[in-house]
């Protein structure tokens, strides 16, 4: 029997397929409207800021800040039950998108994670796509 794996997104979902296609190239793609500058994330075909939107795809730098998080101690999910304790977080990318992800690359998630900390993107590789995760920034601030 195979080990349980992280639940992976579908690559054929109409709105988000371009984002997930980008992860294969290790690009964090997001949309911005040329008309009204609104940053759209998660991806959609329409601009949420104006009705004559003109969306363009951009690539985020991967530099980010931790907005808030929780360390999960208990999960019944077949994959995540073996990951506890692990950190889920809302993360603000420098360019504006806020994404739900995990903070990884810390020795103790109970001690080494704090709101406001600088993060950087890390890709977890899978066959059809990569999953965007975040680790503490190695850049000096």
């Amino acid at each position: 029997m195979n080990d349980p794996v992280r639940p992976l997104p579908r690559t054929d979902e109409f709105d988000t397929q371009e984002f997930w296609a980008g992860t294969k190239e290790k690009e964090f793609r997001y949309q911005q409207c040329r008309n009204c500058d609104t940053v759209i994330f998660y991806a959609r075909r329409h601009c949420t800021g104006c009705v004559d939107g003109d969306l363009e795809w951009k690539i985020a730098s991967g530099r980010a800040t931790l907005y808030t998080y929780s360390v999960v101690r208990q999960s019944y999910h077949p994959f995540f039950r073996n990951q506890v304790p692990y950190a889920v977080a809302w993360i603000d990318l420098e360019e504006g998108p806020r994404i739900l992800s995990n903070v990884v690359g810390v020795s103790d998630p109970l001690k080494d994670i704090h709101i406001g900390m600088r993060l950087e993107l890390e890709w977890e590789e899978h066959d059809a796509l990569c999953i965007p995760l975040f680790r503490p920034s190695t850049e000096s601030s």
Binding site: P7, P9, E13, R44, V72, H77, V88, L100
Partner: peptide
């Protein structure tokens, strides 16, 4: 992952 785009973004993180 379901076919709702927001779910398709969130599910991988294991947020209970």
């Amino acid at each position: 992952a379901s076919m709702h785009p927001a779910e398709n973004m969130d599910a991988y993180a294991g947020m209970t």
